[in-house]
Each structure stands twice: as structure tokens, then as C-alpha cells.
Design a protein around this nucleic acid. Structure first.
Lengths: 223, 223
DNA sequence: ATAATAGTGTCTGTCAGACAATATCTA
DNA sequence: TAGATATTGTCTGACAGACACTATTAT
């Protein structure tokens, strides 16, 4: 029985939630879009395999983002070649440029979610894995400060709010959001510097705090 | 590479959170306590494997409880015999009697968590898996109505509160808890019947509602 | 000055914690 | 009757949503 890792790599880019996809170079489903991933080596830890595949297939480093195990998929027919059990991982990172063509990761590209829904979707059961990853990311923004994983090391409150708005596909009141973020100890740390982003009053720059869990959480609206 | 499933089976029994353990009948660690589990069959879905092992090793049915995937463990040295990647599952169920000795599940027994901490612990990395399962269960009581999975089909508000108190190892105000549970639409459904449990006013009997997520959640106290 | 964005202050409704009071049972 | 448990109701403080208002920049 083969064991693989698959990666749901998300970022906020051009005001949209985007996922990193690769174009399959070998059958089955050659030419189709898929999540990056690959087989776990005989003496390799699952977490190490996820980091290795992230780097090999996308050129990204785990350092500036957040990597966590998502869920394991093992339907007997999920891969037509053989029985493959795949441990899926979720990576949230800032909008980093991908390595240029010519490298191993030449086939990797950011894809807006809306484009996937219009197109043919992903190979194998990757649509399902992606949906689970997105739901996990949305839920985690509620009760952890993980939205900062989508930002650069220093960011403004507006940029952080923008992450929430894009991931949740909603609008948040800038004033209430500002109060919530800055009044929760450990959520963000003021660097003392400011950033002038064109028009308007310059915004204070923050770094991630050491808080692990938001109490109380920042809840999405429900229907 | 071998793929297995391991089960964290929890119940509330004798006012304590208890876990189902089996005594290993074969080396390595023969005679030691371990979580129930076994290898996934070549054409078997992971979820089916979890249900099968639950029944084979413990005699329990998934029906009256709640089964969900927990996490996958795959450190290269977690099993000294060979490389085994294990998909762990979490099962929460009412306090059911285990099959008597003589059946396949003769080695299965309920074990209070406190006893495990005093003793030698579990085989392999099962202490870690168990800890992850307990933390998942504790967290899920906050934002889902899953506490009812620990109760019989019909239960009183006090019994439900007792589940929270045991799993979280805390005390909750009976009046505020009663208000929260009965005023959240879909959390529980009044059956119209009552149960007289000895002394005191008889309590109304409820069944699980169809709510999937508690909004707002029922948060534990934090340090 | 005007527009735009950042940030503060205030009001209000909701909800959880504390706890008084009432209801209904057993001993 | 007293004691125990269930259930309802009230008060209060914390906090989120709505939104007026001030602050600081570019044009």
C-alpha cells in the first residue's frame, strides 16, 4: 500500500483566495490540474515529506507560513493505478512569487478558487481535499490568529482585515475589527512604525503576537 | 508500507472519562495496554476499517455514538517491526457494557484516564494519540452538540451537564447550563416525558436535536 | 479644501456568570 | 416535615454590531 502526501497551499493574492496547483506531467490525467504532492519515502516522517514536497513542487519554504495536517484520504479507488493512502496537509502563506520556469516547480501556479469552479476541477479526489482545506482555513480564522500567516512579517490592521474578508468572502466593519484585534492581548504586536500606502492616514505596522487561541473567538456570520 | 487504523474510544462511566484499551496478545510489548486497532485491508476504505476494528476488538457498534477521523501518525520508528502509518479515529459513545470474555474482544476493557497516568501508559505512540483524541473531544464539546453522543438516546439536562463536567474536569452552574441548552434551538428536543432518578424533582427527558454547530459556542474556562 | 484611510468613543442588544426563588419529588 | 434536585427569573458585566467623530495623509 502506497502512502503519499498532498498539499493544499493557500494564499491571498489580488484580492482573492488562491490555491497552488500543478499540472500533471504523467498519466493518469496528464495535463490536468492537481494539488502538489508525492509519495512518502521509506524512512521519512510524514511532516518531513510534506515540507519536502512543498519545496520540490512549489519552491516555497514553510518558514513564513503555517503548515498543519489536514486529513487522510484512502478510498480504495481514489487512484486508478494502485491503492494510495494520502495524508493531506494545509499550508497558509503570504503571497510569494513562485519560482520561474526552468526549475523543478515549473508546473506550479496560483489559481483563484473561482477559476477552478468554472473549469474542470482537479484530478483524483483533490476537489474534495481542497474543499476540506478551505473549510479548515475558514474555521481556523475564527478561533486562532492564523490570518497573520497570510500576511508579510509586518502588516497593517487593514491588511489583516482584508485576509478575513477574502477568506470568508464577507465584509467586516473596519472600526470594530480594529478594536477587536488591538484589544486582544497577544494577537498582534505594535512595531511602532507606520506604513503610508498611498492616500489616507498612515497605518501602524504590527507583527504576529504569541497568542495561540483567540478568546473569545472572532466569529463569522451565519445564515 | 503498512497502513493501520487505531481507535480512541471514549465514554463517561462512573463519573470519570474512560478509554477503551486492549491488552496486546502478541509481541512487541505483549501484555501491555494499547489502543484497539489493526491493519487496513487491501480493498477497504479507511472509515470501514475503523468500523470493522471497532466491532472486532471491542464489540461496539458505531450507531449509538460518534466516529470521526482524528489524525494520522507516521513517524518512521513508531512501530519496531516495520513502517506503519496509522490513521487514528475518535469514537465517543454512551457507557455500554463490553462483550464478556470468550469473544474476540475479550481483551478490551474500560480504563479511567487517571489510572493510565499512574501506570505504564500505552504501547507505541498511543499515549500521544490518546492525548490528541481527548483534546479533540474537549474542544468539540465547545462548539458542537456532541456531548449527547456520550448519553443514552434519551437523557436529562443534568446528565448532559455531567458529561461536560467530567470531560472538562470542571463544574458548571446547573441553572445557567440548563438555560443555555434549552434555549439553543436544535441542541436538544424535549420528549415530553420525565425521569425520576431517586430524590428530587423529576427531570425532563430530551433527545439530540439536529443542530450541528453551537452558535454561540459553550466555552470552557481558560486559565 | 476634498477625498481617503486610520483610529477613537459611544450607544445598545445579546449573552454568560452569579444567584434568589419556586416546583416537585423522596425519605 | 426536611432535603434534594429541577426549573424559572433577575441582575450585572463583558462584548459585538452600528455608527458618529477625530486624525493624518495625498491630490
Amino acid at each position: 500500500m502506497a502512502v503519499a502526501v498532498d498539499l493544499v497551499v493557500l494564499t491571498v493574492r489580488d484580492d482573492r483566495l488562491q490555491v497552488l496547483t500543478v499540472t500533471r506531467g504523467i498519466p493518469p490525467q496528464r495535463g490536468a490540474a492537481a494539488l502538489p504532492g508525492g509519495f512518502v519515502l521509506p524512512d521519512e516522517d510524514l511532516h518531513d515529506a510534506a515540507i519536502r514536497e512543498l519545496h520540490e513542487e512549489t519552491g516555497l519554504d514553510p518558514a513564513p507560513g503555517h503548515l498543519e495536517q489536514l486529513r487522510t484520504y484512502g478510498a480504495p479507488d481514489r487512484d486508478p493505478r494502485m491503492r494510495v493512502v494520502s495524508v493531506a496537509w494545509l499550508f497558509l502563506g503570504p503571497d510569494l512569487p513562485l519560482p520561474r520556469a526552468g526549475s523543478d516547480a515549473a508546473a506550479a501556479a496560483w489559481t483563484p478558487l473561482a477559476d477552478l469552479r468554472r473549469g474542470d476541477g482537479l484530478a483524483f479526489d483533490h476537489d474534495r481535499i481542497l474543499a476540506d482545506g478551505i473549510e479548515r482555513a475558514r474555521a481556523k480564522l475564527e478561533y486562532t490568529p492564523l490570518a497573520a500567516a497570510f500576511c508579510d512579517q509586518e502588516f497593517t490592521v487593514s491588511q489583516l482585515r482584508h485576509v478575513y474578508e477574502v477568506v470568508w468572502d464577507t465584509r467586516l466593519d473596519p472600526r470594530n475589527f480594529h478594536r477587536k484585534v488591538t484589544s486582544t492581548p497577544g494577537f498582534v504586536v505594535d512595531t511602532g512604525r507606520t506604513e503610508s500606502s498611498g492616500r489616507g492616514r498612515p497605518a501602524a505596522l504590527y507583527r504576529r503576537g504569541d497568542l495561540e487561541l483567540l478568546h473569545p473567538p472572532l466569529l463569522r456570520e451565519r445564515p
